[in-house]
């Protein structure tokens, strides 16, 4: 008798199904989006760190910090947590300002950076209203310690390309602007973005917003869904449930 436990569907497996369905469509017909349920976010930073680990982000580069705000006065007080990935705007202010077309909107809606094209001028960083872009200054976490550790130099697979890290060089992604790309390399494998996978509160929904059957499309249409800085008209594809 299993009625005492609500028959559970594994949300991550369902969303992976959603992704696989989307991958069968032409790239231009997908529209990747994310819904973050702030009621389920416990501010644990697992997404932040998993992203750092997955993309081998060096010190100073972060794609998905979690903002932590205390609200109210004692004893009527609470805290609110808000993860901040790249909003993957439909009208991204960062794209037109790039002088060399290094950043662009992919047909599937992801705002991508061509690491080999980027000259590192950081104009896009100033243009993003969400501070979603950070600059790779070339640091490593274990520089200056008794040993430069190898795990930091292992390649990341951003945009489906192996990028080993070579501190002291100016080889990309060092010297580039960097940002969240919804773990495009994982999407292409039918996997969820790392932050969605690793969320211990299952607070993220992810998938193809164009797919009516997808969980993310359902959640993005909830009455309590909002986007950040809506007044700017950037049309984010990241929604928050509040």
């Amino acid at each position: 008798m299993s009625d005492t436990i609500v028959p559970k569907e594994n949300l991550l497996l369902r969303m992976q199904e959603d992704i696989r369905r989307a991958l069968e469509k032409p790239e231009g017909e997908r529209r990747w989006g994310m819904v973050i349920d702030t009621r389920k976010c416990v501010g644990c930073h697992a997404c932040t760190i998993s992203c750092v680990a997955e993309n081998k982000l060096p010190p100073g580069v972060v794609y998905r910090p979690v903002l932590d705000q205390e609200i109210g006065t004692y004893p009527n007080v609470t805290r609110r947590f808000m993860p901040r990935p790249c909003m993957q705007c439909e009208k991204p202010p960062c794209v037109p300002v790039c002088p060399v077309n290094a950043t662009y909107i992919r047909p599937d809606g992801i705002v991508a950076i061509d690491y080999e094209q980027c000259i590192g001028c950081r104009y896009c960083i100033t243009a993003c209203p969400y501070s979603a872009r950070t600059f790779d200054l070339g640091h490593t976490y274990t520089e200056g310690t008794p040993e430069q550790e190898v795990y930091e130099l292992l390649p990341n697979y951003e945009y489906g390309v192996e990028h080993p890290r070579k501190p002291g060089s100016e080889e990309s992604p060092i010297g580039n602007a960097r940002k969240c790309h919804f773990c495009l390399h994982r999407l292409e494998q039918g996997q969820l973005p790392m932050c969605v996978t690793t969320c211990i509160g299952i607070a993220n929904y992810f998938g193809d917003l164009n797919d009516r059957e997808s969980l993310v499309a359902e959640m993005a249409a909830q009455p309590n869904a909002i986007v950040l800085k809506e007044e700017l008209g950037t049309k984010p594809k990241v929604f928050y449930l509040i």
């Binding site: 010190p59 993003c128 501070s131 640091h139 950040l228």
Partner: peptide, 15 residues
């Protein structure tokens, strides 16, 4: 801060 709390959300050189 473009978003409140960003300064303390993650730290590092340049942040």
């Amino acid at each position: 801060e473009e978003l409140k709390g960003l300064a303390h959300a993650f730290t590092g050189p340049g942040l």
